[in-house]
Amino acid sequence: MVIMFHCFSNRAPTGVLAMAWAVIEKIIVAVLLMASASYLGWRAYRSVFKKNSDGCICDGCPSSASCSKKK
């Protein structure tokens, strides 16, 4: 909550809070990056070796021709 408050007030937190924030910030960034990397890797793997359950070859690509959508 305190951190949130500091976030909203847009002031760099001071003291203990600053240290806490510096750690939390790093953790958030690290988690996000790790999640992105593993997600993208998994997608790449899947698009080479597997099709989607609904027969989509790539679900990012805008091609109704290769994807079936169920209502």
Partner: peptide, 20 residues
């Protein structure tokens, strides 16, 4: 369909890739 397709691509591919 195209719009959603692209939003999906932006969210699922471009977003994580941009972070990396």
């Amino acid at each position: 369909e195209k719009t959603f397709g692209y939003l999906k691509k932006a969210g699922l591919v471009l977003l994580p890739a941009s972070m990396l």
